[in-house]
Amino acid sequence: MTVHPLVHEIADAYLALVDAAAPGLVEGLYVVGSTALGDFHPARSDIDFVAVSADPVTAAQLVGLERAHARLAARYPGPVFDGPYLTWHELAGPPAQAAPGPHVSGGALRRRVRTDRTPVLWHTLAQHGVTLCGPRAQELMIDTDRAELAAWTVANLEEFWRPWLRRSSRLASRPGLACLNGWEPARGVLGVSRQHYTLATGRIASKRGAGEYARAVFGDRWHRIVDECLRIRDGRRRRSLYPNPFVRRAETLAFMEMAIGSARRLGAGRLPLGE
């Protein structure tokens, strides 16, 4: 697929900096996330990368990486260049078995992170990864167990999105008031739609792709809220479909309740017995 020129520009700058700071460390560089899924917006999207090496990053290399990412962030304040450092061996095995390691978030390097080692990342890289250097992403040995992906997705619904919905349902709270702002409805509606899509298909969708999927599978009742969230996601300046933000908030919460329930039922049919 064609990648935005700014992605290539920032990736080239990164490779030059990291090769100077830790020569030979990065053997493969790939972009995932919205960039690889055809939903990249330079003013709003991050550039999500995966850097792969033969061996785990050493303490000395970490110092060089911190310096390289600090310089990259100073040169390019946005979009941020975020992602994990992994080994070929880790990608070939289950994400849960990958050791905590370096991860860049907001342009700053954190030395030991585990939460980014997920089946979603493994599957996105295998299905959609765009190669910037090294072997082609689609030719890599990557563990892509669909049962693991389904189990992780169901857990994410229960541990992240269900509590998110519960907090946002209390109007007299910070999350509840935030849901009057357009960005939170878009985050919630498109976020749970992505999980539903994954459980239904075993694949990964962008936010826009998930919205289009939701519009197709959930029926006319939900078109207005999905269209509104796609409008917000795309940064369209045309008038909101909801003159009253309280009505939009109510429909956001109702959609999420419906979609999470539907996704849970899908997940129950995708998990092995005993899970």
Score class of each variant (00 low, 15 high):
T144H: 01
G267H: 05
E27L: 12
G129Q: 13
Y242S: 07
A51R: 02
L65T: 04
G106I: 01
V80M: 09
D227N: 13
V3N: 00
R233H: 15
E158W: 06
A137R: 06
G211L: 11
M1P: 11
Y197T: 03
A21I: 12
G38D: 09
D220A: 15
T198W: 01
G269Q: 11
L37G: 01
Q195V: 03
A172G: 12
E257H: 13
A92W: 09
A214Y: 08
S53C: 02
R236N: 11
G33T: 05
N181Q: 10
E148F: 01
A210M: 15
P94V: 00
L62K: 11
R146K: 09
H196C: 00
Q138H: 10
P245I: 12
N244I: 04
A178Q: 13
P163A: 13
R117G: 01
D12N: 13
R221H: 11
L125V: 08
G107E: 08
V217M: 08
G107M: 00
T2F: 13
R224Q: 02
W164L: 05
A68C: 03
R270W: 11
R117L: 09
S193Q: 02
C133I: 09
L29W: 05
V217E: 02
E9D: 03
I10K: 10
P119D: 10
H196G: 00
R194G: 01
V113L: 05
A51G: 14
P79R: 04
L125F: 14
G182R: 11
W222P: 05
R270N: 06
N181G: 14
R166P: 03
G24D: 10
E66A: 12
I142Y: 02
V189I: 02
K207M: 08
P185R: 04
P95H: 04
G93Q: 14
R270L: 03
V192N: 06
T115Q: 14
Q138W: 08
N244S: 07
L29S: 01
S173W: 05
H8A: 15
R111W: 11
Y76K: 04
H123K: 15
G93Y: 04
A92M: 10
